[in-house]
Simulated scan of single mutants.
Amino acid sequence: MFLEIVTPDEKVFEGEVLSASFPGSDGSFQILNNHAPMVTTLGKGDIRYQEEKKDEIHILVEGGVVEVLNNKVNVLVEKIFDDNE
């Protein structure tokens, strides 16, 4: 499936992934290929995604919105924390 993560300032990631998990407002959840369409909000926590034959990536976010439709996952996040925050 195709994952795109953007902030108001930049595109953080764009590419094919095997899976992605998110810090939902009501608890964490995972998206896999052929997931049902949905729109939901994010809380503060880690977005994790796995590209084929690569290590899992973690991005700490403050909140945002996730939209899933036709194997495309669009993620709009308010703020991304770096390792020093």
Rank of each mutant, 00 (worst) to 15 (best):
V17L: 03
Y49S: 04
S21L: 12
G45P: 01
G45C: 05
V39M: 00
G43A: 15
F2R: 09
R48Q: 12
P37K: 03
F22L: 05
E67C: 00
D46Q: 10
V65A: 04
G15R: 10
G15K: 13
E4G: 04
I5V: 14
G43Q: 11
H35I: 13
K79M: 02
K54D: 14
A36S: 14
G64S: 07
D55A: 05
I80D: 06
G64C: 09
G43T: 14
I47T: 02
N34D: 13
S28E: 12
N71D: 04
K54A: 15
L60T: 15
E16G: 09
N74Q: 04
F2C: 01
F81W: 08
T40P: 01
I47Y: 05
V6A: 03
G63A: 09
T41P: 02
L60H: 05
L76T: 04
G15W: 01
E52K: 15
T40S: 09
F81K: 10
D46S: 12
I80L: 03
V73R: 01
G43H: 03
G27K: 01
V6Y: 02
E52R: 15
P37D: 03
V75N: 00
S21N: 14
L69K: 07
L69S: 07
L76H: 01
E16C: 14
I59D: 12
N74A: 04
T40H: 03
I59V: 12
K11D: 05
T41A: 08
S19C: 12
Y49L: 07
E16Y: 10
H58Q: 15
V6F: 02
